[in-house]
Design a protein around this nucleic acid. Sequence first.
DNA 1: ACTTGCTTACTAGTATACAAGAAGAGATGA
DNA 2: TCATCTCTTCTTGTATACTAGTAAGCAAGT
Lengths: 241, 241
Amino acid sequence: MPKITDITLQRSGPAAREIYSALRHRIMLAELMPGTAISEVQLSEQLGVSRTPVREVFRRLADEGLLRIVPQVGTFVAPIQLRAVYDSQFVRETLECRTIVLATANMNVRAADELQDLLTLQKRAIRDNDLERFFDADDRMHTYLIGLGGYPAIWDLIQGVKAQLDRVRYLSLESGDWLNRIFEQHEVIAARVIEADAAGAEAAMREHLQSVFLTIERLAVNKPELFEGHLGQQSSAKSTP
Amino acid sequence: MPKITDITLQRSGPAAREIYSALRHRIMLAELMPGTAISEVQLSEQLGVSRTPVREVFRRLADEGLLRIVPQVGTFVAPIQLRAVYDSQFVRETLECRTIVLATANMNVRAADELQDLLTLQKRAIRDNDLERFFDADDRMHTYLIGLGGYPAIWDLIQGVKAQLDRVRYLSLESGDWLNRIFEQHEVIAARVIEADAAGAEAAMREHLQSVFLTIERLAVNKPELFEGHLGQQSSAKSTP
DNA sequence: ACTTGCTTACTAGTATACAAGAAGAGATGA
DNA sequence: TCATCTCTTCTTGTATACTAGTAAGCAAGT
């Protein structure tokens, strides 16, 4: 006769985790625009759970700067603060430019193959014009390079600050042209790392990150309504559809 | 006849925030040792509130890596992972060495006065042998230098990763000797920044942060029982006193 | 027509109740 | 004496009820 502990295979699963991923995804892809009001009750009913797990998710997203909780008033998708975007860029550039120097020191054949594979993934995503898949492969390449530098956990930290950057990236709807340019930069970075050219790799990485940042800055000028203080008056706030 | 809203002067205040600060403080100062079990019910009764706010605090501290929540088993003060300490050191050194270069470019008379004042605070804390006050003044100096670099928000990020470092610092019970050495390093850093010597300031900062790290590494060797995987079996776990 | 005051509907914060699982104590059997 | 099973008691996860505060809508008075 099996012990009770043996049956614990089909766990109901942490509902909160699912909700977190889903909601975060919707915010990142701007399916939920900045300023949009989100009700705990409404969302919990929509998902068929109670307020408690939804509430925990709200708290976490608020800590990440993606939601803004106003006591006794409501919860809103946070506006994109240009200040935070600049800070994110600074942190990311500083850390990645340092780690890639370390990465060149740990170079080997297997790593070269891995980088080649990641480049191939990106090329295919561009061919299929699949923005989300390209960003995913992009992330994986940066992740791998950071791990190669010897501090894989740094990526989690970058992931956190990168959230504000990525929100704008998705909004900017970068065209195939830009994707190709990003891909070419990735190729240069990979080449420099593979040939263990520390200074060259660092320069290539810095140029790459800064050029991505420029497209973001451009959007900030073209669509200023998405940024800064478009909260406080939630005049244009709409409920979740 | 007064409105109902007029009587609402004595607000109870956000209980969760208070609990967060208090509990975090107790963990940081190692009043609660790694591995210690903390019960939601027990703490909520002790504080005279319900489980809900306590639960939110637990979640946040778990996200920061200070608590470890094991479903259906318990919540424990997280062990200090040497890996995380190394990562923290790397991030902090990388970011602060970059920001201090920027700080030298923004130097002015008022900033020099401020740095002098902060050094005075530290000297007095050492004289009074007040470790906590010294660490506080220490933090304020680093905060100011980062702000002077033009990215004040970066400090919040460093604060987050620094948590793991500070836990060890408090545990190491640095003596007056060490405090004096740290103070001297601060003096050198301030001097280099004031005379706008970017390279010198960066070097001084790097040496400073690495020397602090060395004392931490030393403790990790001397008291290995506080580190790594001392959870899972909470054999030595005690309840909150 | 406009202002003032109150009612109402909605919000997040908190408290409490219930459910599910894990671990240890103790009984029961060999 | 030792192993095994069961039950009690703990834990966190979830659901629901209640409190307090905000803001907008409505109605009465000017």
